[in-house]
Computed example of a mutant assay.
Amino acid sequence: MHGTALSGWLLVAVCAATGAYCVLRLRSDCPHARSSAGGEAVMGFGMAAMAVPAAFATPPPWIFAGYAGVFGATALRAGWLVHARVAGGGHHLHHAIGSLAMVYMALTMGAPGGHPAHEGHSGAAGGIPLLTGALLVYYVGYVLTAGIRLLPTAGPAGTVAAPGWGARPELTLACRLSMGMAMLAMLLAL
C-alpha cells in the first residue's frame, strides 16, 4: 500500500488483531457469532498481509492473483449465504462487498504501476476512479453507521450476565468498525 511505513504497520496490527478476535469468535457457543466469524478472520488476516509496507518486503507479482483468488472465494461464500438467507444476511452482503473490494484492490495493486515498489510509478490514483469513489462512499457510510451503533445507550435496569468473549456484540462491532476504517485507509492509499 502507498503511504508511510508507520501507517502500514499500524494497519497491519489493527487488521491482524481483528482477525485474531474473529478466530476466537469461531469458538463461541452462539451460532450467530460463528456464522460470519470465519470470513471476517480471512478478511482481517488478508488485509493485514496486503498492508505490509513494500519497503519491508516486496511481494512477488503472483501474490496479488493469490489475494484476488482468496477474496473471490470469500465473496462467493458470502454471496451464497446472502442467497440462502442465512441469519445475518445484511452483514453477509456487507462481507461480499468487502471481499469484492479486496479483489479489486489486489488486481489494482498487481497491475503494472499499481504497487509502490514498481519502478516509474506516477503517483496517480490506481484503479477505476468511479469504482474507488463508490467504495469510499460505501465505507464512509458503513463506518459512520457502525460508530453510531457502538455508542452506549441506556439499557434495561438490572444486571445481565455478560456473554463469553466470542459473543460480545460490542467487541464484534468494534472489530467490524476497525476493519471498515482499515478498508477506507487502504482505498485512500490505492
Rank of each mutant, 00 (worst) to 15 (best):
H2A: 15
G3F: 12
A5Q: 15
L6K: 12
S7F: 04
S7H: 12
S7Q: 13
G8T: 03
W9N: 03
L10N: 10
V14A: 14
V14E: 03
A16R: 04
Y21T: 01
Y21C: 07
V23H: 02
L26R: 14
A33V: 01
S36R: 14
S36N: 12
S36Y: 12
M43R: 11
A48S: 10
A49P: 06
A49Q: 05
M50G: 14
A54N: 02
F56E: 11
P59I: 01
P60E: 03
I63D: 00
F64T: 04
F64A: 04
F64E: 04
Y67C: 07
A68W: 10
V70C: 14
A73R: 08
G79K: 01
G79F: 00
W80Y: 13
A87I: 05
A87E: 15
H92W: 15
L93Y: 08
V103P: 06
T108G: 13
T108L: 07
T108W: 04
M109F: 12
G110C: 05
G114H: 09
G120R: 07
G120Y: 05
G120W: 06
H121S: 13
G126D: 13
G127F: 02
L130Q: 14
V137C: 12
V140Q: 02
G141Y: 01
V143G: 06
V143T: 12
A146Y: 05
R149N: 04
P152F: 07
T153M: 13
G155K: 11
A157S: 11
A157H: 11
A161C: 09
A162P: 02
A162S: 15
P163D: 05
W165M: 09
G166P: 01
R168M: 11
E170F: 14
C175K: 06
L177P: 05
M181T: 14
L184H: 03
L184I: 15
L188G: 08
A189H: 09
